[in-house]
Amino acid sequence: MSRCDFKIVLLGSEHVGKTSLVLRFVNCRFNSGTPYQNTIGAAFCAKTMHSNGKDLNIGIWDTAGSERYEAMTRMYYRGAHAAIICYDPCCASSWARLRHWLAELRTVEEDCKVYLCGTKKDLLDTNSTREVPEDIIATYSQGLNGHYLTSSKTGENVEELFQKIVDDCVADRDLMQKVEESRVQLAKEQEKDKSYCLC
């Protein structure tokens, strides 16, 4: 039913900056004025991207980090092609939960590409103190598809992160074959719907 070619899911503790990351990427905005509001359940956004001469629709699920929704998060990474796991380098507790997401993904969605994303780089660059040591991050990101330090405030590395994900997906032959198949399937269904509508 989904008209998206790729499904990307954002995971991570509350307050790490998932919603801000999506808002920056999709709407090119950062709301520094409005106070923090936790996401309730999950939010969905779509955006068209280009890679290797192709137009691709990507669907992004921004999940809630609150513990209250933890049991529900599984239904968002089911079937995801890529996951962005966010942590805040200046907040040790946001790192602690990250192992939990990784383990979950490995068991539920083996083929999902996993990207690590350190958020709020602008704060790290100015005055905040790093709480998550770089060598630990390096060790963890080895087995993953990439690691980025982003800032939703300045926009640094945000586009790059999503572009890398789409490029990786497009380079994945098996995945692209499935995407083509489902496009054909969808076109067929739409044909059928149209003929229904006529009568």
Binding site: G41, A42, A43, F44, C45, M72
Partner: peptide
């Protein structure tokens, strides 16, 4: 809920909602 949540303005949300008078025991999905 709607008045208190800015985030509904920027994206489509998918949210579990329990309506206590309707059914206090479970969630509807909104």
């Amino acid at each position: 809920l709607v008045r208190s949540s800015e985030s509904f303005k920027t994206a489509e949300s998918w949210t579990p909602i329990c309506l206590p008078k309707f059914d206090a025991t479970g969630f509807l999905h909104g």
